[in-house]
Amino acid sequence: MNKKKMTLHLKIWRQANAQAPGRFVLYTVKDLSPDMSFLEMLDVLNEELTKKGELPVEFDSDCREGICGTCGFVINGVAHGPRRGRTVCQLYLRDFQDGQTVTLEPFRAKAFPVIKDLVVDRSAFDRIMAAGGYISVDTGSAPDANSILIPKEVAEAAFDAAACIGCGACVAACPNASASLFVSAKIAHLALLPQGQPERHRRVLKMVAQMDKENFGNCSNHGECEAVCPKNISIKYIALMRRDYLRALLAK
């Protein structure tokens, strides 16, 4: 246990709702333990604010163990903060310096309107999933687990893509606010498996169309998405999505 206490200066984006203009507000939080998580630190700040009769800073979180994809905002210009392969809920104060000023901004994209403070509406992702991010199966008894054999490498590649938790950091980090990494991960994990084949072409066409409709930007291969992705999803899936898209277009 690190005994030394630390102080952080926070520059936090406060915005009452989607229509209201936002602005940065400065807060100083003292007596923090370096072993605290970043979100716990915000909990401390919010308790102080509540005691003072002020509105707490809204931010999203749920599991707080890096698996649900609920949390996420931008810390000093980097989505999910300074550590690679982590969500913001898995970030600890020891990654910051005592007395440091830290800027907190919501994920900024037209497709992710701010609901309040650091909370954004990511339902655009749900609509992309609804457009084709599934396989159609008839109901009935579950098929035997080993009736479709899948080579280990294939299963692993599909799983790597399926590890996407839909947090939206890729969109936030992309200079173009593109959702390509998320969409390609969702396309790839089904495209790599036998169960995904029947709807493979239809799926990529529909999901890309929905992505465009949601006002996400195009992909310029900056690769910043892969760098901030808490699940280290590779842009190789974006290449796969492009190949699949072209194939589907030519087959049409």
């Binding site: 931008v74 000093n76 210009g77 980097v78 901004e105 006002n215 900056h222 690769g223 760098a227 590779s234």
Partner: peptide
């Protein structure tokens, strides 16, 4: 796609 720009822009390094 991004009408409101970030106040601070960073580079995550790594795979970027």
């Amino acid at each position: 796609a991004r009408p409101v720009r970030y106040a601070v822009s960073g580079n995550a390094g790594g795979a970027s």
